[in-house]
């Protein structure tokens, strides 16, 4: 796999202009789809407002109750879905590029598993509320990521070693998580399972604004570093031969990627699969083997926004955790793409 990937950029320059054009068109279509998901997400619910009216209110034409419903109740959740989705997708793209493995995702360094451990401890042992759970998740995730990084360090962090250490630490924590869930009362365990699947139920501006600021800043950071990311994708040796300070660049990118996933997870729980599948989907949509951060971010945003729309409406009034829906639609779409068979599938 790694061999084919390292020569890809050389072959790819053949139709670079064509690819760039296609990438722009795909991005435009995805952006429109994101906005549509936003409008539909805001328009529905117990008090339904027509999409046309929503657009009018969004441009400042609303008053009274409708304004409150849209701006205070529904907008935080809809905006969170878009911004968080983009953050998760880019975080996944960074990890897949650095480990050069299609199964790479922030889970590789155990972040999500560690965050779930922290949240579970907060919920089951400390009997914590929302703030304590968020704090537990953040602490658990960051400590786990740090542990994996330190354990994998040995004159640098070779992708393979990082993967193995990550698997080990995650497996131990995952099984500790199962143990905590098994020991807990059934209703506490189920509440924990909803958190563990990842959910946007009940998010407010107070949570969304600080998290979004962190996510947007980290996204910009990764975009600035995307040249290094493309070089690292060709392999550590080649990148360092091209004059890169490999370990420093890797560290900065990993920190940014962890920041993205940490901010989102603290508020919404470990939303499964968006980080893993978005880079793969974007790659196939654009039809290019190399990294495309903007289509990736937009794919993630759309996936989470659309998933949350379904999570809210599918079994209303029962609200599913959005993570349950994102795995299903992300998985189904991946199956469809695999089956279409017109493009050679690359890792």
């Amino acid at each position: 796999m790694s061999r084919t990937q390292s020569i890809q950029p050389l072959i790819a320059s053949r139709s670079a202009a064509h690819r760039a054009a296609r990438s722009r068109i795909v991005s435009l279509v995805l952006a429109i789809a994101c906005l549509a998901a936003l409008v539909f997400s805001i328009s529905g619910g117990e008090y339904s407002i027509t999409p046309a009216k929503v657009v009018q209110i969004l441009f400042g034409g609303g008053e009274g109750l409708e304004n409150t419903i849209i701006w205070q109740w529904r907008m935080p959740r809809a905006a969170a879905a878009l911004i968080f989705g983009a953050g998760l997708a880019v975080s996944g793209a960074v990890f897949q590029s650095l480990t050069r493995n299609p199964l790479g995702s922030p889970d590789i360094i155990g972040f999500s598993t560690g965050a779930y451990t922290g949240a579970l401890l907060a919920l089951t042992v400390a009997g914590g509320g929302f703030a304590l759970t968020s704090f537990g998740a953040l602490l658990g995730g960051l400590l786990t990521a740090l542990l994996v990084y330190l354990l994998a360090w040995r004159n640098g962090t070779a992708g393979f070693r990082l993967i193995l250490v990550g698997i080990g630490v995650s497996a131990a924590l995952a099984s500790f998580n199962h143990y905590l869930v098994l020991r807990a009362e059934l209703d506490v365990a189920m509440a924990a399972a909803v958190w563990g699947a990842g959910s946007l139920n009940g998010v407010t501006w107070a949570g969304v604004i600080p998290v979004s600021i962190v996510v947007i800043l980290a996204l910009l950071g990764v975009l600035i570093g995307s040249k290094s990311l493309q070089m690292l994708q060709m392999g550590d040796d080649l990148a360092s031969a091209l004059g890169m300070r490999v370990e420093r660049a890797k560290l900065v990118l990993v920190v940014l990627a962890v920041l993205l996933i940490a901010a989102v997870t603290a508020l919404a729980g470990p939303i499964a699969f968006v980080a893993l599948v978005s880079p793969q989907l974007a790659r196939r949509l654009v039809g290019s083997g190399s990294l495309n951060l903007i289509p990736t971010a937009l794919t993630g945003a759309f996936l989470l926004a659309f998933g949350d729309l379904l999570a809210q409406r599918l079994f209303a009034p029962i609200q599913l955790p959005v993570g349950v829906v994102t795995v299903c639609i992300g998985g189904a779409y991946l199956v469809y793409l695999l089956n279409r068979g017109t493009q050679k599938i690359r890792s």
């Binding site: 399972a193 299903c328 199956v335």
Partner: peptide, 15 residues
């Protein structure tokens, strides 16, 4: 990837 995709869908449905 097919294993990941189907595994994800079934895990999601199961959850």
């Amino acid at each position: 990837l097919s294993g990941v995709a189907i595994g994800a869908i079934f895990t999601g449905l199961g959850t």
